[in-house]
Design a protein around this nucleic acid. Structure first.
Lengths: 348, 348
DNA sequence: TTGTATGCGTTATCAT
DNA sequence: ATGATAACGCATACAA
């Protein structure tokens, strides 16, 4: 009975520190979890021994014992979508500040992937943050019943959530276009399953109606640059003079698609994006609605921390305003553009 | 002795499944960890009971018992830098495929942050992946001594690493420019502490020398769009006709900065990026060196999995080639550009 | 093939 | 203020 079956990786445990410090294991534990119960003298001694051995409390054992892992899960539909990196970054920073580590999951836009990620990680985390989830409400509620769950960009009753006030920004954008003289505007939509898309479309329709403008919808099934480019083709067959895109990525695609066909932005078409995540990086700089995604991430984490620390079971609904940022892709509509309307028949 | 001190969150444990299935706890355990030891019949029965109760093995307890958490840590200097999202995404997908969950850490480009993230997460993961670490070699080796550690974009002897072959791509880029007729080229550098930057600069110098071109270095301290724009100002005071930027982001900044001052790309200046992460999204589409960052992420994960599964202690050095992708930001140099050289004195 | 018993590293409940 | 000891949920050596 001398053979070690589980070769301890060399990491010192509480036992060895206790031995070295000449105290019980309980005392060592208290030194790191509830030092207020100890004499500063013993704390000192234990700390010294721990430092000497390079001891660090094992979070796994701690988690098993307390039922709290000090981990949170952040699930996003697509890390590579430029909307999310700033959000993830800010969320991670805020969590780290509260000494929580974060699991990152990418659902690849698939509801069922969200589902499995959530169930697989569940036991290792104290709570979830779901950004722009595609999962159906019922399943989300099921997960929320197990652990505290915060929603970003999705509005489900009685669940804590951080949303953006899409209306303000979209209204500003359409008003801006109307003031420039545009009368016919296109909305290039994102994924129809996306709550964000529905909100934006609804807001655009409402604002256009109020201002007496014509708004036509054009579908870009995925929120990608590619889809935007394809949408550009469809735009050419319309007589709109301005376009509002689902997000910056789509807007960029639209601009490129239009440019490829020889149109100049904003002379031949005004384009407005949404999110303001890469707006400042395009040329010409994109007029867009700023969504403050970093703040969204931070607030979501804070919502979760609040619930975890307090133990209370609330469901705040935080709404972060959006606002139009006018840059260089919007201007007055050009007067003569009939040649574009029916490129095959019009001679000039 | 009836009061539960730790109110089990309602999550069923192995014990309850054992009870329901009429077997011992060990059998339930085996059903999920080593089913090959069991009769398909009993497996069936246990599975049914488990499904019935909604039982899922608790990874925390499992980790404490086995010493393996099936978690890995991925540390990057800046999630928001467009180089990393595709890498993170691909790495996460590959890890998930092998049923590993991933912790994401953002060091905010600070070496000391890497250090603390690493030590804090260490006990919860089976291994680390460090992407473009800024941490000094000694510290990295210390962490590598505790757990398997894979490097991305950093070449440290005797440590497993996934690198890109910068030379190929840079040489292709400079050759491409030389063939177009450029004789004086600028390299707009990235962070000097960055191994990647050193590699690229070295490769550029070498290639330029071989082709008899003049290469001048221009500093852009941070790898950001902003820095690129600032570098544009410096470029105007030189007589170079082409620029190779540290990465796509800097390239984009350079292009914007140049465009702001009325220059047209590529007519007035050829620009080459590096990474190919947003190249296809710019307008005009950026000529750049493709770095295959997604593959870098996948290979790093596979390197780690290989070590974890096999237990072997190797240090492969994987090198992924880069290659030039010619798009629309490079062309022959314009002949007359003297007006730019001394903008204050030249009348025309 | 399956059951019994012990350990993983910590926290928490009692004592002292 | 500190020490002994029983959980936490699972895996595994050993026994049957």
């Amino acid at each position: 009975v001398f053979a070690l079956t589980k070769p301890n990786t060399g990491t010192p445990t509480i036992t060895e520190v206790a031995l070295a410090a000449g105290v019980s294991r309980a005392t060592v534990s208290r030194t790191f979890s509830r030092p207020e119960l100890l004499t500063s003298e013993t704390i000192e001694r234990v700390r010294a021994a721990a430092a000497q051995l390079g001891y660090v409390p094992n979070p796994v054992a701690r988690a098993l014992s307390t039922g709290r892992a000090r981990n949170i899960a952040l699930i996003v539909p697509d890390i590579a979508n430029p909307f999310f990196p700033p959000l993830i970054r800010a969320a991670q920073a805020r969590a780290d500040e509260a000494s929580y580590a974060v699991f990152l999951g990418d659902s690849d836009e698939k509801p069922e992937r969200e589902d499995v990620l959530l169930t697989k990680i569940a036991a290792q985390v104290d709570g979830f943050i779901l950004a722009s989830p595609r999962l159906d409400e019922h399943r989300i509620r099921t997960h929320a019943a197990r652990r505290p769950l915060i929603l970003i960009n999705r509005d489900i009753e009685a669940l804590p959530r951080a949303l953006m006030d899409v209306d303000v920004g979209i209204t500003q954008a359409i008003t801006h276009l109307a003031e420039l003289g545009h009368r016919r505007i296109a909305y290039v939509s994102g994924p129809s399953a996306s709550w964000a898309n529905q909100q934006r479309q609804k807001a655009a329709v409402k604002a256009a109606k109020r201002l007496g403008l014509t708004l036509m919808g054009i579908a870009a099934l995925h929120p990608t640059y590619q889809s935007g480019q394809e949408a550009a083709t469809k735009l050419l067959n319309t007589d709109v003079t301005a376009t509002i895109a689902f997000d910056d990525l789509v807007a960029q695609g639209v601009i490129a698609g239009l440019a490829d066909r020889g149109l100049q932005i904003p002379r031949d078409m005004s384009v407005v994006g949404f999110d303001d995540v890469l707006a400042a990086r395009t040329y010409p700089p994109l007029t867009t609605v700023a969504a403050h995604c970093a703040e969204l991430g931070v607030r979501a984490v804070e919502l979760l921390l609040e619930i975890l620390e307090s133990g209370r079971n609330e469901a705040p609904r935080i709404v972060i305003p959006t606002e139009l940022v006018v840059r260089a892709t919007t201007s007055e509509p050009a007067k003569l553009r009939s040649s574009r309307r029916k490129p095959l028949t019009a001679a000039s």
